[in-house]
């Protein structure tokens, strides 16, 4: 189990680093951006709001270490400060409104993209040299070269505005109340379709190509030749022997890339006014709401780390070599 323990220690370390970054950034930035921010907010914010903001950004006059303990203490109670844009709502409450929508959209599209991309990679590696193998990689490389949100804009324009097949914005229809009804869930899917599609199109090629290349490496291994000499059916050789081994390095790559994809999906949310973290992020940037921005950074980092933990558990399940003690 030392493998999984090592990974968890790493995630804990990464979490600590992001906490420290989060704490230090407003306090150590050159040119006093927070000071200029206060100047700008003068008159716009109530005095209580200014005080709360000063407190959370480190203008209390205490020593840095004392501030850090205070920061950790309030964090442990789920207190990330008050949002400026949505004053006086606490940051945690603001984030909570969008968190599930982001997890739903990013999770859905990342999973679909990984599954389809990996399957296509297996297929084109198995039939390498075929027309499929020669046409799919360049096609998806081209699609992958677009910024996610630009692809989203294009899809929205074509399928939303021109063809009117899909809704233009939000996570569900304005006339609906969230519930577990069939009507609501199908509406949720209809709203998620375009944003998810843009993320899937942009990321699919990466999974496909890396799976293809690891498959090709694995196909040169001796155990593949032996499996064929055994007379096993080609489906068995392809899945049980080749893909089963090739998926392992791809899972590691998936863990590394998941943060990047989730970040990209935030930008997509903006295009569709999807009420997730990305939408909050753009509000925070516009209103220069530093506490909210930092809260978002922590939330996203934590979710990505959690996703990585899950992936590692899966990895241990799939690779016996990580399970042995030696």
């Amino acid at each position: 189990m030392s493998y999984i323990l090592k990974r968890f220690v790493l995630y804990f370390l990464a979490f600590c680093v992001s906490l420290i970054l989060n704490f230090l950034l407003p306090r150590l930035m050159p040119g006093d951006p927070v000071g200029t921010m206060f100047a700008r907010f003068k008159g716009r914010l109530s005095p209580e709001a200014m005080d709360a903001l000063k407190q959370s950004l480190g203008f209390s006059g205490d020593s840095l270490l004392d501030q850090f303990w205070a920061y950790l203490h309030s964090l442990s109670q789920g207190d990330l400060g008050l949002s400026v844009a949505y004053f006086p709502t606490p940051v945690t409450e603001v984030i909570a409104t969008g968190l599930w929508w982001t997890l739903w959209l990013a999770g859905l599209s990342v999973l679909i993209s990984f599954i389809i991309g990996t399957s296509l990679g297996i297929l084109i590696a198995w039939r390498r040299g075929s027309w499929l193998d020669q046409s799919l990689p360049p096609l998806f490389a081209f699609l992958g070269a677009f910024p996610y949100f630009w692809l989203a804009m294009l899809l929205l324009w074509v399928f939303g505005f021109q063809l009117d097949w899909f809704p233009l914005r939000h996570a569900y229809g304005d006339d609906l109340e969230p519930s577990w009804s069939w009507l609501f869930i199908s509406d949720m899917f209809r709203h998620a379709a375009l944003p998810a599609l843009s993320i899937i199109l942009a990321t699919l090629g990466g999974w496909m190509l890396s799976m293809r290349n690891t498959m090709i490496t694995v196909l040169g291994e001796d155990y593949i030749s032996l499996a064929q000499a055994k007379g096993l059916s080609s489906k068995q050789v392809m899945l049980r022997y080749a893909a089963r081994n090739a998926i392992l390095p791809n899972l590691t790559a998936f863990g590394m890339a998941i943060g990047f994809v989730v970040s990209g999906s935030l930008l997509t949310e903006i295009v569709f006014s999807y009420p997730g973290q990305g939408y909050l992020l753009v509000q925070a940037v516009r209103a220069q709401d530093y506490p909210l921005m930092q809260g978002l950074f922590l939330t996203i980092t934590t979710s990505v780390l959690c996703a990585n933990c899950l992936l590692d558990l899966l990895y241990v399940l799939l690779d016996p070599r990580t399970r042995s003690s030696s």
């Binding site: 291994e221 001796d222 155990y223 032996l226 499996a227 049980r240 022997y241 089963r244 081994n245 392992l248 799939l318 690779d319 016996p320 070599r321």
Partner: peptide, 10 residues
């Protein structure tokens, strides 16, 4: 090479 001849995950 028996080292690589057996499927490492089975």
């Amino acid at each position: 090479s028996a080292m690589n001849a057996l499927n490492p995950v089975l």
